[in-house]
C-alpha cells in the first residue's frame, strides 16, 4: 500500500517538471531609448521576428513588447552548436502620461523594432523666462 502511494506521487512530479521543460524562457531584447522634446524613440533587437509575430500593447501605463520568433529551422534538423535558445522576446516599460498613446508608430526592419512615442502637445517643455529684478 505504502509503495503504491509513493508511485503516484512520483508520477505527478515528473509531469510538472516536463511542463516546465516545455516552456522556454523568454529572451530579453536589448534596447536603445532616446528622447528629445518631441518624442521618445525605442529601438529593440528582435532578430527572427516578422511583422505578424509582433505584439505591442499599452495597458494603463505599461508598454509591453512581445515578439514570436518565426520557425525557420527545418523539421529534420538537429542542433550541433547552440548559443541561444528561446522562441519569443518579451520586454515591458512603464511610460508616463506625457506619451500620446494614440500616435505611437511601430516599424520593423531586419529584426530591429523602432517605436516612436510622441509626446502630447500640452506637456512639451516650455521655455520659462527668468525675470531678474
Amino acid at each position: 500500500m505504502a509503495d503504491e502511494r509513493k508511485d503516484i506521487a512520483k508520477r505527478e512530479e515528473t509531469n510538472i517538471s516536463k511542463d516546465i521543460a516545455k516552456k522556454t524562457r523568454a529572451l530579453v531584447p536589448p534596447v536603445d531609448i532616446y528622447e528629445d522634446n518631441e518624442k521618445i524613440v525605442l529601438l529593440a533587437d528582435m532578430p527572427g521576428v516578422s511583422k505578424d509575430g509582433l505584439d505591442i500593447q499599452i495597458e494603463k501605463n505599461i508598454l509591453s513588447i512581445k515578439g514570436k520568433i518565426e520557425n525557420i529551422v527545418p523539421e529534420d534538423a538537429k542542433p550541433i552548436y547552440v548559443e541561444f535558445g528561446g522562441n519569443e522576446y518579451v520586454r515591458s516599460f512603464t511610460i508616463g502620461p506625457e506619451v500620446d498613446v494614440n500616435r505611437i508608430q511601430a516599424n520593423l526592419n531586419a529584426g530591429v523594432l523602432k517605436l516612436i512615442l510622441p509626446k502630447a502637445e500640452e506637456v512639451k517643455p516650455k521655455k520659462i523666462e527668468v525675470q531678474v529684478a
Binding site: D45, A77, P79, V112
Partner: peptide, 26 residues
Amino acid sequence: VSRGTFPVINVGETPDNVIVYILAPG
C-alpha cells in the same frame, strides 16, 4: 558565450546540409 555577445550563432544539421543561423539584426 557571455551575455551580450554579438552576433550569437546556432548551428544545426540535416541529413544533406549544415545550417548556420547568425542573429545579426539591423
